[in-house]
Design a protein around this nucleic acid. Structure first.
Lengths: 227, 227
DNA sequence: ATTTTCACTACGTTAATATGTGGTTTGAAA
DNA sequence: TTTCAAACCACATATTAACGTAGTGAAAAT
């Protein structure tokens, strides 16, 4: 009986049926999830694996539409696994299901190819809704995860871009400095004399209100004056 | 499903009303929203403004917990407004309500300080749920917006965090350099001789594979070795 | 118990940089 | 036309940085 539930036989490719696979090392969670999925109309659990290695070996036999994967797995972790799964099966949607809520892991998981990130405390109804959300083009995330994602987002483009009125030439020179050039090599690169570099640097220092090459580089990078 | 939304298990427990303000130029939408908010238990519409300028002038009289703001407004647009509102009232949560779903606007809005982004087609029940979500620490986004955010996220993946095995001392020195210190001032700061600084720098250069102070600063900043 | 490793400290020499002064040329604005 | 800003070049010089060399003490490895 349990067997039937865990390995639903009527998993024929009906387009309205959402096929789900589970990667989770804890048996009770794994089986709980598959029971819930099979008992929900419109869903079918087509695979449940206790490790990423297991999933990678066996998932080809019955490809799901969505994978629910734990992050903390024995052996290969969920994030590493997502990279591989996404490479082999780009069309499969992957939702992370994790107890971790640190920025590092959220970031890595989403960058690895996960299309959503749910905390394990997510109530069952919400989880099923998230699966539906994923297949219909969304990116389900637990509220606190979503907030963190938005906050992380902001770090990528600090709001205020101060205008330092650097001339195009000065910007180009600044870029060379950031790339590690010295006066001499920058002079060569720009086909001017070292003195000219020196002159322009002085102007840059004034505009940026700094007094050394490295301080200028730091300010340029922090204020995104150059890429 | 609607049931799940309307009877969310982790609904607000505090009896206080959630105060909402609306910034929207189209009268029928503005009034529709405020009626819906006032007719929903636990919510109160404390302001509705037809332009950002209007809101900025009058909102101080009755500060809301959450603002629902349109992006396409006459005069100052919603994104510019969010920046100003967030600067004056950092504690207020702001949700964008927009017909636009282009990456540029989503990105700008979230970076400007919005904590969520909803499309105007969002059904009323979902909208009220989003307001609740926002005040309880989430970041409500329409599914397609969330997906775009996750996709955008991937584009901003910083370089793989390489391990450079810098000693704590070296990291501290590197940090000082980024802050614009010279050998001399760094030596003073760390209470060692300039020669010692020189030695450590050499080690740092080796580990980072660079050959100058500014190159080290650039690499440190680019690889997020220091904040 | 000893050697080895490693982080840290230090000195000295040479190369690079910061900063001042002086100037020319060019193209666009007044 | 004059004026001005942005490029460019040069010389002078004090300061700073790069790098080779070398000693110390503490912890890990032998």
């Amino acid at each position: 009986m349990l067997d039937t539930i865990l390995n639903n036989p009527k998993m024929e490719t009906k387009s309205e049926l959402i096929k789900v696979a589970i990667i989770e090392d804890r048996r009770e969670i794994r089986e709980g999830l598959s029971v819930m999925i099979n008992f929900t109309d419109g869903f079918s659990c087509v695979g449940s694996y206790r490790s990423m290695e297991d999933a990678l070996h066996r998932i080809a036999h019955n490809l799901p539409d969505v994978i629910l994967s734990d992050i903390g797995l024995p052996g290969m972790d969920g994030i590493e696994g997502v990279k591989i799964l996404k490479e082999k099966y780009p069309q499969i949607l992957i939702l992370m299901l994790s107890v971790y809520d640190d920025n590092e892991r959220i970031f890595d998981a989403l960058c690895a190819g996960a299309c959503g990130y749910l905390l394990k405390k997510t109530p069952p109804a919400q989880l099923m809704e998230s699966l539906r959300d994923a297949v219909s083009g969304g990116a389900p995330m637990s509220p606190e995860i979503a907030r963190k994602v938005v906050t992380l987002f902001r770090d990528f483009r600090p709001p205020e871009r101060v205008e330092y009125d650097l001339t195009p030439h000065e910007l180009r020179l600044l870029k060379l400095l950031v790339e590690g050039h010295s006066y001499k090599t920058a002079a060569l690169e720009l086909s001017v004399s070292v003195n000219t570099i020196s002159f322009h640097l002085k102007s840059i220092y004034e505009k940026l209100q700094v007094h050394s090459k490295s301080e200028a580089v730091a300010k340029a990078l922090k204020n995104h004056l150059i890429k």
